[in-house]
Each structure stands twice: as structure tokens, then as C-alpha cells.
Design a protein around this nucleic acid. Structure first.
Length: 291
DNA sequence: ATGGTAGGTGGCCTA
């Protein structure tokens, strides 16, 4: 699927508003500084017109979030949790948001999670710690923290989905999960088995916690294995990132099964990686039929 | 076995 092919079905349906009332389009993007790239966010919103955009790594304090830029484009509803310099998450929406909440994983107020209700659906924007370079929890505290974060996510998410169900709500979890769980989520499975993001310690944890929560990896419903699907390409490859296509699928959209049954389309907005001074991640979109 | 690039910060950290 080329970027153009991917773009049309989603963009036309949400751009022209004809099916807008019948569909809910959710996007997620690790923007790697929202202030530096606010015009890229604006261009993306203008082109794809998702109803909701979940951001990660906004890298600014909540007060410094460039809300006006997005409000002008019709994204009037925002939930933001930022901090100076690192991490930070947000949800932008054309539809009203309510019941905004945050969760502090591992007892840290490090702005890695925010959630809100949109059109009766509970939407989460999550940023899992990257985990450093050495895949040994005994020697690398950042990797130990990542594993502890995933372990807490396992029990927390299962409970969260249960509570949503008892309240009659569907759940969409999006974000930079910093794990590429399947062999076809990386450019070379064997070479990446000892590279953080694709070690069995991480991939088994992520698949287990998703299954235990009863959630569906909706990107893989529409782009099933063995197709390679990537959402991130390292800056360190320089200009060769596209030539070799050495990417990983670190950014995800999951939903509860009833919502997954109403999935209409999925897209990876890969063209943004070719824009000047891009984020190293690209947006992932999913469109659902509304009841 | 290693270093490559990027962003925010404040005299290096995280990714």
C-alpha cells in the first residue's frame, strides 16, 4: 500500500464530512516536541481531518502547549499533561471531551498517560518509557523501569477495561508503546531480538497484557502479518531511512472487541517522515463506524 | 564492536 493509497479512504471520508456523523477517526502521533512541529501537526490535521489526535512526547509544560494553533483548525477540545523538556501527552478533539484523567505509572508524575471520553468512548494517549540501550534489567535501570511500567500496565489496563465495560463504554488505547511486538513489526526480526523494543521480555509482556485486557490490535486487523508495518525510523540512519526501510512498529491503536467489529479502515501517514525536520515517528489512524 | 541524529536544556540528559 502506498502512502497515497493509504491516504484516500480515510482522508476523503473524514475530510468532506459526508460520513462524519457516522464515523469516528482516531489518530496517534509521537511528535517529539509539539512546539517545534506545531505547523506539521496543523498540516496533518488539515489533510487527514481525524476527529481525535493523541500526541506523545510533546516535550513542553502544560502551560506552554500551543493550543491556539489547533483551536483555529477546529480542534477546540484538549486534554494536556506536559512537563518541561521530556515526555508529555495530549488529546486534541473536534468533539467534546469529558472525564479527563491521568495515571501515574510506577508512582511517577512523568506525564506518560492521559485519557478522556469522546462520543461515549474512552480514549487513552500513552507513552511507554523507551528503556535505554542495554537489554539487561540488572545493569540498566531504564530497562528495569520499562519492564515495571509494562507489568503495572497489565493489571491497570485489565481493570480499566472492566470498569469501562460496566459503565457501558468502549475503550481505545493509543500511543507510543515503544515495543514492536510481532516479527513483522521490525525490518529484521532475528537481528533485533536483543535490541530494546523487540526483546522477548518486552514483546511477550505487551502481547500478554493486550490479550488479558481483551483488546484488539486493530492495525493488524487491516494490515495483517506477514506484511511489514512500521511507524518509526531512527534519526541515526540519516537520509538512508527510506532507502533501507529499517523501521519498527512502535505506535499502536488498540480497541475493545465491539468497537473493533466496527473498524472501517486503518492508515499509516508515512509521508510525514519525508517532511523537513520530521518527527522520527509517523501518525497511525483508525476509523470506526459509530453506532 | 561501535557510532550514527535529534530535541531541550543549561553546562548533559533522553530518545
Amino acid at each position: 500500500m502506498s502512502a497515497d493509497d493509504e491516504r484516500k479512504p480515510l482522508a476523503t471520508a473524514t475530510m468532506h464530512g459526508a460520513t462524519h456523523g457516522d464515523a469516528l477517526t482516531i489518530a496517534t502521533w509521537n511528535i517529539n516536541s509539539v512546539r517545534l512541529r506545531q505547523q506539521q501537526v496543523a498540516a496533518f490535521l488539515d489533510g487527514w481531518r481525524p476527529d481525535v489526535l493523541c500526541l506523545q512526547e510533546i516535550r513542553c509544560a502544560t502551560d506552554a502547549f500551543p493550543a491556539r494553533t489547533f483551536r483555529r483548525l477546529g480542534y477546540e477540545h484538549m486534554a494536556v499533561w506536559g512537563r518541561k523538556g521530556h515526555a508529555g501527552v495530549a488529546i486534541l478533539s473536534r468533539l467534546p471531551l469529558c472525564n479527563v484523567q491521568r495515571h501515574c505509572f510506577c508512582g511517577l508524575e512523568d506525564a506518560r498517560h492521559i485519557m478522556a471520553e469522546v462520543a461515549g468512548v474512552e480514549v487513552h494517549s500513552l507513552y511507554v518509557p523507551a528503556g535505554g540501550d542495554v537489554p539487561d534489567a540488572g545493569r540498566n535501570p531504564k530497562f528495569a523501569h520499562k519492564l515495571a511500567f509494562l507489568d503495572e500496565l497489565r493489571t491497570w489496563l485489565a481493570r480499566q477495561v472492566q470498569q469501562a465495560a460496566s459503565g457501558g463504554r468502549e475503550v481505545i488505547l493509543t500511543g507510543d508503546l515503544n515495543v514492536a511486538p510481532l516479527p513483522d513489526d521490525v525490518w529484521d526480526h532475528r537481528r533485533l531480538l536483543r535490541v530494546i523494543t523487540h526483546t522477548p521480555m518486552e514483546t511477550e509482556r505487551l502481547e500478554t497484557l493486550r490479550a488479558e485486557a481483551g483488546m484488539v490490535d486493530v492495525v493488524r486487523v487491516r494490515l495483517p502479518v506477514p506484511e511489514k508495518v512500521f511507524t518509526w525510523w531512527s534519526y541515526r540512519a540519516g537520509d538512508a531511512w527510506e532507502q533501507h526501510d529499517r523501521g519498527r512498529r512502535l505506535d499502536h491503536v488498540w480497541s475493545t472487541p465491539e468497537l473493533a467489529a466496527r473498524l472501517e479502515d486503518v492508515a499509516i501517514a508515512r509521508e510525514t517522515r519525508s517532511w523537513p525536520r520530521p518527527s522520527d515517528h509517523v501518525p497511525v489512524l483508525a476509523r470506526f463506524r459509530r453506532r
